[in-house]
Design a protein around this nucleic acid. Structure first.
Lengths: 351, 351
DNA sequence: GACTATGATGGCAGCGTTGTCATTTTGTCG
DNA sequence: CGACAAAATGACAACGCTGCCATCATAGTC
């Protein structure tokens, strides 16, 4: 005879499946079936069990579950100090879906530069047999992390990865379309000479954004001026240099669209040396809607990724996970955030 | 005979304690002892086992451990949308200590206003038999949460709670001393008429800060002017009203110390209507070093809580947990963050 | 040298659940 | 109403680890 919690009414120990089975007058197996929403249980029995579950506030023990089955109900969120707001938003999205699905979240902060990162990830995954993990930038582009995950046979979803990875599941925005939209917005304001600062050439997102920019110009019938497209590397420093180059042109652009907010902020700083008033004499747009976009003066027009929604999508992909190895890419809608840094060009007739 | 992973070399399943025992030529019990750093193992045996552990990259399974012992190696972090930076910093601190101690972190975001919050917390704690949980503001002041934790017999540590709770373990800064230091700093700059905007009267921290302010004045031999102490409620709106009141005085203060950053930011906004230049004509100080303190112009002199350190201390308290019910209060050192919003009063001789 | 304390090690049950398979009950049809 | 399929339910062995207790070796004591 199994001892049950009810043997000691004052026991703080939570109710076990035995308690529920006893109270409902069925076997523990049947309770298990009801709790896991499996078929082959009569409505009457289900009802009885549910009642007992509620009465005892029974929750299946996560450890026993994880040990007995392949399903751990645990999702891992791995991150390396991105901006606080980014990870916070991400986490909220992840937690939302986890709660809905009865999963729990284990978070781990890693240092992408740590040579031991592979071992760390492998340890984490094997010892808690995670159902799957979510990789945020810049971890989603760490070869060591991905290798460790594959070695441990652990499914993962990458959020907004920069580089493609064969067979990976990714969640991202459509960088091409986003850059297209931003460029179209600037064109709509009346700008014809729009400078573009490219991102790091190794990053897929940078390529897509540049392609979107070019496509928008083309559709608008504005010829592409190679002179207006300068290379950057996503860093503030590179933005400074790129801005310098663009603003030194004798036929200066009336707007500059930078591949990310850091570089756009650099253009702002740079324009001071050229005695240009922003946005009256030069419109500036960024990308990402990072913190800097809101702190800088004037605040930057930029493009925001729907971080929460992306996180939720990632969890859903992990949980549904139909064909184990099917690579998937989910593209969510971005959002153009118009702030004070962009206005029609000097001398334009505002419609 | 127990099957081991090595029966199938290509099996992605991680090494189990059986594999290690077999390889080291000892019993699983001995492996367990070594892994858990227990005594009564000879150095030679320990060495052998360690070697096997390393060779197989063995990590004890978290579920089996949790099921077999009372120790879950799981810490819970509960929060309700505080500022993103706050929770991010907190989490980094918690994770740091968890990693050092071999614990994992489960995070859960709750809605303090949800009437079901008690059940939610109880579920979480019972189903994963957490070693302990960390409560951040404003959850640390939720009676329902605390009740659920006590009912589940789960130890908890509160971070920077506003209200005292008998028998609770708390980590906080010394609000009294912090406010004292800030006031002393302002006095040191030469200010004599220092306005104070109190925090919400229900919050213990608000009381302590006010007391610190008064004590500093007293020690400096500056008489307390009741007129200069106005009530606020920690909100931006209340700061606006309080600022209005203070700046309307015929003998206007030369500095205003607000009970938190939000109210200090409100004073900044308010001072524009009075055509006061900050900091030349009015010094303003806040408290918390929240994001707003760094974003506002001029940036606020304020007082920072060492959030990471507080989080680390909380984890340590949870893990060490000697006498189960011993209430403890850890007070960590704050840090005065001097920025552009405070200077000597008009006409003062700067030393 | 017999006896005891102490350290080192192993055997085995049991933690609360799920998977597998056997068993019982119910429903259907000729 | 008997035969048979399908649905409902239960018995029992895992899962990987730790707690408890037994066992064995070694050293120390008189």
């Amino acid at each position: 005879m199994k001892p049950t919690s009810s043997d000691r009414p004052d026991n703080p120990k939570p109710a076990s499946i035995y308690d529920v089975a006893k109270r409902a007058g069925v076997s523990i197996k049947t309770v298990s079936r009801v709790v896991n929403r499996q078929s082959n249980v009569s409505d009457a029995t289900r009802e009885k069990v549910m009642l007992a579950v509620d009465a005892l506030s029974y929750r299946p023990n996560i450890f026993a579950r994880g040990l007995a089955s392949e399903r751990s109900f645990l999702i891992g969120l791995l991150y390396d100090n991105p901006s606080a707001g980014y990870i916070a938003a991400m986490q909220v999205g992840v937690l939302t879906r986890c709660r809905e699905e009865g999963y729990h979240l284990i978070v781990e902060s890693l240092d992408a530069a740590n040579p031991n990162i592979g071992r760390q990830v492998h340890s984490l995954v094997t010892e808690s047999s995670l159902h799957g993990v979510i990789l945020t930038p810049p971890l989603c582009d760490s070869q060591a992390v991905i290798d460790a995950l594959i070695r441990a046979n652990c499914p993962f979803v990458r959020i907004a990865p920069e580089k493609p990875f064969p067979g990976a599941c990714d969640v991202r925005i459509d960088d091409f379309k986003a850059a297209y939209d931003m460029t179209a917005y600037l064109l709509g304001l009346g700008h014809k000479r729009i400078g573009f600062i490219k991102g790091h050439p190794d990053h897929g997102a940078a390529q897509s954004r540049f392609a979107g920019y070019r496509s928008a110009l083309e559709h608008a019938g504005v010829p592409l001026d190679e002179e207006l497209c300068v290379q950057g590397y996503f860093s503030y420093q590179s933005g400074l240099e790129a801005g310098e180059k663009l603003l030194s042109l004798k036929d200066r652009p009336t707007a500059i669209f930078a591949g990310n907010d850091d570089m756009a902020a650099a253009v702002l700083a740079c324009s001071q040396r050229f005695n240009l008033k922003i946005p009256q004499q030069l419109s500036v747009a960024g990308f990402d809607d990072s913190l800097v976009a809101q702190v800088v003066s004037p605040r930057l027009t930029t493009c925001r990724q729907p971080i929460r929604e992306m996180a939720e999508a990632a969890v859903s992909m992990l949980i549904q996970r139909t064909a184990a190895d099917a690579p998937v890419e989910r593209r969510l809608d971005h959002e153009l955030v118009v702030r004070e840094s962009t206005v029609p060009p000097p001398g334009a007739n505002q419609s």
